[in-house]
Design a protein around this nucleic acid. Sequence first.
DNA 1: GTGAAAGCGCTAACAA
DNA 2: TTGTTAGCGCTTTCAC
Lengths: 344, 344
Amino acid sequence: MNLKELSALLNLSQTTVSRALNGYPEVSKSTRQRVLQMAQKHHYRPNARASSLATGRTMTIGHVIPQHSSHDVGNPVFGEFIAGASQVYSANGYELLLTIAEQLNEEDTYRNMAAGATVDGVIVHSPRRQDPRVQLLQEIGLPFVIHGRVAETTLEYSWIDTNNRRAFRQATKLLLDLGHRQIALINGPEELTYAWLRRQGYEQALHDAGLTPHPDRLSSDELTETHGYRAASAMLAAHQQPPSAFLVSSYVVALGVRRAIAHAGLRMGEDISVIIHDDELSFFQNNDPEPQFTATRSSVREAGKLAAQMLLDTIDDLAGAPRTTMLEAQLTIGKSTGPFRQSA
Amino acid sequence: MNLKELSALLNLSQTTVSRALNGYPEVSKSTRQRVLQMAQKHHYRPNARASSLATGRTMTIGHVIPQHSSHDVGNPVFGEFIAGASQVYSANGYELLLTIAEQLNEEDTYRNMAAGATVDGVIVHSPRRQDPRVQLLQEIGLPFVIHGRVAETTLEYSWIDTNNRRAFRQATKLLLDLGHRQIALINGPEELTYAWLRRQGYEQALHDAGLTPHPDRLSSDELTETHGYRAASAMLAAHQQPPSAFLVSSYVVALGVRRAIAHAGLRMGEDISVIIHDDELSFFQNNDPEPQFTATRSSVREAGKLAAQMLLDTIDDLAGAPRTTMLEAQLTIGKSTGPFRQSA
DNA sequence: GTGAAAGCGCTAACAA
DNA sequence: TTGTTAGCGCTTTCAC
């Protein structure tokens, strides 16, 4: 059933039917009623491709996840973020196009999207410290919002991000206050901005306490369980001064860390502590009875909503200046957190 | 830059240019060269909406994730599956449209996709034991493949699934062989087919060993960290016969279970064991030095590829009968797995 | 308040 | 081997 058939059925012109369906005011009330009823009855849906061709708007937003951070696709944070964004899109009649792009074809991907008229705008995930995508997107004039930030650029652009540096500084300070002196950081790849900022926060807190960061207590790699296990195992096997606490960049990684801890025969919360930070999440201490885990998840979702809304606003009003949103990570500490008890 | 402009530049008709670009054989070699060069030079990309309107194919596949299994969106398995599918799509010139659908508008979602010409086919996620979507999709004639299965239906349809029942039977048997008698199952919601099958496998293994499943050692709920923590805590606090082993349906949940274990002061691999099964994944024992975790992830990705390929095949050949693929879960046991040692 | 006609950018008969 | 023409299903001027 298409417009032509529907209007034939109603003895009306396509124009009138289209107007009735799209809520134009100049249609008489009774006509609109008739049209709406008939449309419903025959399950009429406008052909999105056709109207997109006629209007020049695709009503579709692209989310681009770089393939190189391949394990990130499996990171729950992506799912939550996208789930949030998705809600905003459906509420506004938009669709979500997901692209997992190899870094090689990256430029292609975006050019296709713009010139190929597949999307009206994009959300860019996993920005790197130096990231050519900002310039590219501005050149081709495709509206975009970055989930995260690009560190080394003078260009203005819209983004939404957590205060990663501050968050990791706080977390490290928390562990220091508990008496820990050997604190390890299991981080993501440092060409990604968020990981770089997290490391800065971590090192800042150590410096503030008069400590020098030890390279053996730092690991940067993909956010996988395996990375967590390997890095933590190696650190725990160190002859002198193995870590008494871990600060971990993702709970996927934390699984590996905790496995390594178990394998080394250590007890959580007694011999050792683990703190996880998951993107724009609150912290929680892994042996707390009730960490704010649910809140945590929903806050990523919230970030997704915000980003989507920012993008839709930009699309509706291309004149606007870039908008930015910095989310302050919350520090949630459970009640059971006692002072650090030295093992053996 | 569009076809019209490009062909004007070349003093050729749109038809010829179109043919040259799309690899039709009747174009002369030299013409094709010229066209390709000029297209490249001007970053020409065909307008996907326009060609889709002209051809009737959208070159887009929809993935629909029901909102009701809301926390599933954050489940890494989705990301991996979609990443796999995505690879197949790009290789074949398809795009991926992601929809997170509320169960209420479920019918709407699919009808829109079909009648609105937004996709050529869909992958259906999180099928329920009784799921009206099979019939709906067949009615509206939208090609689809289900990731998982619908239990209670006589209709034929294409699916790809793990042998969940067998997998959980094996896992339970493994724990029984290690000497465990109080084995808990932390499962997903039982209206979802996979959870229902997993429970069957679990109970079958217990029956085979002459044991009766105990309702207090079974928990079915969303696959969240919180669920894992709450359920495991409650079970461990039981006055008599707390579980000595947990069988967990997802590693997100396992995080919570392990937190509960730590909180109860128990040691992994000594006091207690945990086995995780994650969808079409191999098992691994949580305290093994090197479980096949990476292989595990890539196998979900493989499933995504297979599903995508099945769907594209179906689309290219609508006459074909439904195809089905059953993946046998692999059982990977680490070397450190000793016999169960009774605690206290 | 309604309709006729042109056009969005492409593809695909059919001609030449 | 190339071009002409019609049309995919919708929106949008412009005229009535």
